[in-house]
Design a protein around this nucleic acid. Structure first.
Lengths: 190, 190
DNA sequence: TCATAAGCACTACACTTGAAGTGGTGCGAA
DNA sequence: TTCGCACCACTTCAAGTGTAGTGCTTATGA
C-alpha cells in the first residue's frame, strides 16, 4: 500500500470523474489509472479493493461539494430576510449545478450504497452531518424559518438539480430561478 | 427478432429488477436472461442492442409506476381541501416507495440518460408528460394550488423518496408522514 | 387427418474485451 | 547504500456478445 498523499488525492479526483461519466460499475482500477494519467496498476497499489476506492471517493466527493470558507462568510452577510434566502438558494443551486461531475458522482454513490453497507454508512454520516450543519447554520445566522424549513428546501432543491443535470428539458433553465424563488417564498415563513 | 409479446414483457420486467439491483452497467443480456429464468441468448434474440433494451425498459418502468385506474378514481373523491392533498401525497409517497425496484431503476436510467441521447429523449417524454398530467389532474379536480404547487411537491417528494430508498437513516421513517404534511401545508395555499 | 412449413426455444461455441494482480526493474531520496 | 515508489510487462481469469444449428410446437392447407 503506497503512502504518497498527493497521488492518492489525484487518484480520488480521477475516480470522481470516472464515476460521473461511466457510473459506479465503470469505476475500475484501470479506468482510474487512465483518467489520472498514471500507469496501469497504480490504483491497485493505492486501494485494497473496489470497496475501499468507492468509500474514499464518497468522502472526497461530498467534501468538494461544500462551499469554501469565503462562500460561508459571504453567506453570513446581508439582511436576514426571505429575499436574502432566495439569493442564497439561487447561489447554492448554481454552484452545485456547476460541479456537474461531483453531483452526478454523488448520486451514483447513493445508488451504489444500496448494495454496499460500508459505503452506506459513510454517506449517511457525511450527508446527515451536512444537512444537520445546514440547519444549524440557518438557525444560527438568524435567517427566517425553522429546521423543517431547511429540510424541505434541501429536498426540493436537490431534485431540481438532479432534474436539470439528467433531463434538462423537463424543467427548462429559464424556469429555475423563478422556481427557486417560489419554493423559498412558500417554504420559508414570511 | 422474436415476436412473442408475453416473453418480451417478462424480459423487460426482469430488466427492471436487474437495473435496480445491479445498476445500469449491470444490465447485460446475460443478466436479463438469468433474472427471467430463460436460456442464455434469449434477450439477444429479442433486443437489437443494449440501447434498445434500455430504452424499452425505460418506457415500461415508468408505466408501472403510475397509479392504476382504481387509484385514480379514488383520488378524485373526497373533499377538495388541503388536508385531502396531504392524504393523497402520503399515499403517493407510500405507493412509490413500495415499488422500490421500479423507482431505483428509474434513477439508474436517469443517470444512464446522461450518456445515451435516445434514452434521454424517451425519459424526457414520459416524465415530462407525467408531470404535465399531474398538473392537469390537480387543477382539473379542483384541488387547491396552481401549477407551481404541483411542481414543487413533485420536487420535494421525489427527493424524499430517493433519500428513504438510498440512505434511510438520514431521514427516519417516523418523520416521513409529518414531513409530507408540512410540505403540503407550506407549498399548497390554504 | 396428415404432411409440410414456419417460428421459436434452447444449446453450444467461437471470439472479443476488459480487468485483476503481481513480479521485477530502475530511479531517487533519505 | 538502502528503502520505497513509479513504472512496465505478463499471466490469468471472468463476462459478455452474437450466431449457427437443432429439435419441438403449432398453424395451414390439401
Amino acid at each position: 500500500m503506497r503512502q504518497n498523499a498527493a497521488r492518492r488525492a489525484a487518484l480520488l479526483d480521477a475516480a470522481i470523474e470516472v464515476l460521473a461519466r461511466e457510473g459506479s460499475r465503470g469505476l475500475t482500477f484501470r479506468a482510474v489509472d487512465a483518467e489520472a494519467g498514471v500507469p496501469t496498476g497504480t490504483a491497485s497499489n493505492y486501494f485494497g479493493d473496489r470497496d475501499d476506492l468507492l468509500t474514499q471517493a464518497g468522502g472526497r466527493v461530498y467534501e468538494r461539494l461544500r462551499p469554501d470558507a469565503a462562500g460561508i462568510t459571504a453567506a453570513m452577510e446581508g439582511p436576514r430576510d426571505r429575499d436574502r434566502v432566495i439569493e442564497l438558494m439561487r447561489d447554492l443551486v448554481a454552484r452545485v449545478t456547476e460541479f456537474r461531475s461531483g453531483y452526478l458522482a454523488l448520486v451514483e454513490l447513493r445508488l451504489e450504497a444500496t448494495r454496499r453497507p460500508r459505503l452506506r454508512e459513510v454517506l449517511t454520516g457525511v450527508i446527515g452531518a451536512d444537512l444537520q450543519g445546514n440547519v444549524e447554520f440557518h438557525l444560527g445566522t438568524g435567517l427566517p424559518g425553522d429546521a423543517t424549513t431547511v429540510v424541505l428546501l434541501y429536498l426540493a432543491l436537490n431534485w431540481l438539480i438532479l432534474e436539470r443535470l439528467t433531463l434538462p428539458e423537463v424543467i427548462p433553465g429559464e424556469r429555475v430561478d423563478e422556481l427557486v424563488a417560489e419554493a423559498v417564498r412558500r417554504i420559508v415563513p414570511g
